[in-house]
Write a protein that binds this DNA or RNA. Structure first.
Lengths: 120, 120
DNA sequence: TTCAATTGTTACTTAAAAGTGCCTACATTA
DNA sequence: TAATGTAGGCACTTTTAAGTAACAATTGAA
């Protein structure tokens, strides 16, 4: 069994990693289909997306809902337990925003424009 | 220049990575010397510790204070900017604690005992 | 003189994370 | 009949992260 030196490491095991917080930040706004998530995260590959979603599901922070239709439709959303992360996710998003403003005089330079998608 | 799709990615660039949040959680309680940090994080290597500290310093969230004595004494502490992460770090620590309690019936199994060190 | 103590660097190796390309399933539509 | 759209699996390669081990610098103490 994995051992932690301090409890915060357990939190990092759940939401650490390159994409998980980003996924959760999207799901906190709305439930999303796989394809929507892919469009919202242009850098992610199908494999990584599936992999991260599976792990988040295993840890109980998101729900996976499969609709029995063709072509398939799968929707992901935050679970009740996932909502317990809302405070952390909100703070992280806010800190990221002000960090960008502090670090880059005109933030347009570092934020990819997403006019072609539904607003994020 | 690195581009972000959503601002939270900028936050992850600063505090993401295997050790940074753990380091910050220690520094939020007290300033620490290099050797103290090493003892508090038994899993980390000298190289990783130095590397993560350098990056945190570059991003302006910690301070490095060198005392001119032999053998050398170097102390790390949160900068003012680093303190702006306090809310996030506190929430993360709290979430980690309750996640352990929820996930493991008797948490003694997953938390490494640290009776031999100064209390963390 | 040689060792201990503390912090740090560097080159090299290993392990983990992520990317790539190709494959499946199947009802609908052209 | 063949193509479309959606979600995902799998084997393989590449890239990145992390670990290992040896070395440096300094000065007081043994």
């Amino acid at each position: 069994m994995k051992k932690y030196n301090i409890p915060v490491e357990a939190a990092l095991e759940v939401i650490g990693g390159k994409w998980k917080v980003v996924i959760l930040c999207h799901l906190i706004k709305d439930k999303r289909r796989t394809g929507e998530l892919k469009r919202l995260m242009p850098g992610i590959t199908q494999k990584m997306l599936t992999q991260q979603l599976r792990e988040l599901e295993e840890d109980g922070v998101i729900l996976r809902e499969v609709y029995n239709q063709v072509p398939p439709r799968v929707e992901y959303s935050l679970s009740d337990y996932g909502w317990s992360l809302k405070g952390i996710l909100d703070s992280l998003c806010a800190w990221g925003e002000q960090h960008i403003e502090k670090t880059y005089p005109n933030k347009e330079e570092v934020l990819v424009q997403t006019e072609e998608l539904e607003q994020v």
